[in-house]
């Protein structure tokens, strides 16, 4: 099965997705060097698309469209909106202080030194209050994730809730996935890997995952992400592309 003619015969089955893994690998490596095969494969892939037109026609329920459109909306927008909202909230606060100094200070210039002194004391008290609040309140823990040699550009962060039970994952600059692939998060403890969830990134390589786990997230020592067939695998089958250690 190594002459061009015999490999060429695999085109129809490859387009249909019917090649067994070993043959598919052989064919894919041939395809990289053979332009005539690439052209013919596109034609056979179009044939597979056309065959779908022959099934009896049914319409999806009318309400499905709205369901899809409302699910599509937040999927790409939530991060940007949160970012914009936080900017909007901080802007008025900054303007009010600037306005205070611009209008009040010239009129009461004699008292300016006194006022600055009072503000300094007030500021000191506020700082002390914030510090004591920070000490009494539990904090989120973050873990930086770094890309492995197969995806050196990938970055990520794991955010663990103050009680250590649950968390979220955010990644960026992830390598592109094929249509039939997803990323899968693995939580590692005593050498055992448990799935923390399956997700995919948006077209720019940015992705988020809300981690579901039976054991507290903090009980794991390490995390890693692999590329798996759509829907995920019971155990990792792909190479680790990004990972990190939980302290």
């Amino acid at each position: 099965m190594d002459t061009h003619e015999s490999i060429h015969e695999l085109i129809p089955a490859f387009a249909l997705g019917a090649l067994d893994p070993q043959e598919a690998e052989l064919f894919t490596s041939h395809l990289a060097q053979c332009e005539s095969c690439r052209e013919e494969i596109a034609s056979y892939q179009d044939l597979v698309g056309v065959l779908a037109l022959a099934v009896p026609v049914r319409s999806a329920p009318p309400e499905l469209k709205n369901r899809i459109l409302s699910a599509a909306h937040p999927a790409q927008k939530s991060v940007h909106e949160t970012h914009l909202q936080s900017q909007e909230k901080s802007e008025p606060a900054r303007r009010s202080w600037t306005g205070f100094f611009q209008t009040v200070m010239p009129a009461w210039s004699v008292l300016s030194l006194l006022l600055i002194g009072m503000l300094a004391i007030s500021n000191l008290r506020l700082t002390q209050r914030i510090e004591s609040l920070e000490q009494s309140q539990p904090e989120f823990q973050t873990v930086n994730l770094r890309g492995t040699s197969s995806a050196a550009q990938a970055v990520g962060m794991l955010v663990i809730s103050p009680d250590g039970q649950s968390g979220s994952l955010v990644v960026d600059r992830m390598p592109a996935l094929a249509d039939n692939q997803d990323y899968q998060l693995w939580l590692i403890k005593d050498g055992e890997r448990t799935s923390g969830g399956v997700f995919h990134s948006y077209s720019n390589g940015y992705g988020v995952l809300w981690i579901h786990t039976d054991d507290p997230l903090i009980s794991y020592t390490e995390v890693g992400i692999t590329v798996e067939p759509s829907g995920g695998s019971p155990a990792p089958t792909g190479d680790k592309i990004i990972g990190g250690l939980i302290q």
Partner: peptide, 19 residues
């Protein structure tokens, strides 16, 4: 250049179904 939009959409549908 890798195929029609119809082909792409059918391929995603088949992948999801096979899944």
């Amino acid at each position: 250049d890798q195929g029609k939009v119809l082909t792409w959409i059918v391929s995603i549908t088949r992948n999801r179904t096979i899944d």
